Computed example of a mutant assay.
Amino acid sequence: MESIFKAWKTSRNLYLEYFEKYTLEQLNKIPVGFNNNLIWNIGHIIVAQQALVYKGSNLEGYIPEKLFGLYKPGTKPTGQTTQTEVDELKELLISLIDQTIQDFRNDTFETFNERMTGTGFHLSSLADAFEFNNYHEGLHLGYMMSIRKFV
């Protein structure tokens, strides 16, 4: 699990750079040919991790239900994300790493609901969920690398 956590931390630090390199306007811009923007992708990977790991283990997690509605799979930006919301996402992006690792080490995750993801990955264990999360975050980082060329 340590290598999975190391990769996750690296991924999240790459996402963190977008807050430093792009303005609020750029984070919110949906380029022609795309259906989302930089900030939606960040919100989405935060929500997805919480759903995969916590909800998959019958736990609530640490983000407001409102965020699930805004960034869950199948959604797209419905308006401009405010600076306050961006700041909240920036905080969650990093703080949830240590919280999740602490919960893992404290054996908070007692069960896991085996399931198939919408993209066809079979998750039979919590370890599978963590591995898929890293894969999923890598995909969205790739999308963001494409979007950034047009903002």
Results as ranks from 00 to 15, higher is better:
M1N: 11
E2G: 08
E2H: 14
S3F: 11
K6P: 02
K9W: 13
S11M: 10
R12S: 12
L14A: 14
Y15L: 02
Y15M: 01
E17S: 15
Y22K: 03
Y22G: 10
T23N: 02
E25V: 09
L27Q: 05
L27C: 04
N28V: 05
N28F: 07
N36R: 03
N37A: 05
N41V: 09
I42H: 05
I42N: 07
I42M: 06
G43T: 03
H44D: 06
H44N: 05
I45E: 00
I45Y: 09
I46C: 08
V47H: 04
A48R: 00
Q49E: 13
Q49K: 04
Q50H: 04
A51P: 00
L52I: 12
V53R: 01
Y54S: 07
Y54V: 05
S57N: 08
N58C: 12
L59C: 12
L59K: 05
E60D: 15
E65W: 00
F68E: 07
Y71E: 05
Y71F: 15
K72W: 07
P73C: 10
T81Q: 05
T81G: 03
T82G: 01
Q83A: 13
D87H: 01
D87E: 08
L93I: 03
L93D: 02
L96K: 01
Q99S: 06
T100M: 06
I101N: 04
Q102R: 11
R105W: 08
N106H: 07
T108S: 15
F109R: 07
F112H: 10
F112Q: 09
F112P: 08
E114Y: 05
M116L: 15
T119H: 07
T119F: 12
G120D: 09
H122G: 13
H122F: 13
L123N: 04
L123E: 14
S125V: 01
D128M: 01
D128T: 10
D128V: 10
D128C: 08
A129S: 11
F132S: 06
N133W: 07
N133I: 08
N133C: 11
N134F: 04
G138S: 09
H140I: 12
Y143G: 02
M145C: 14
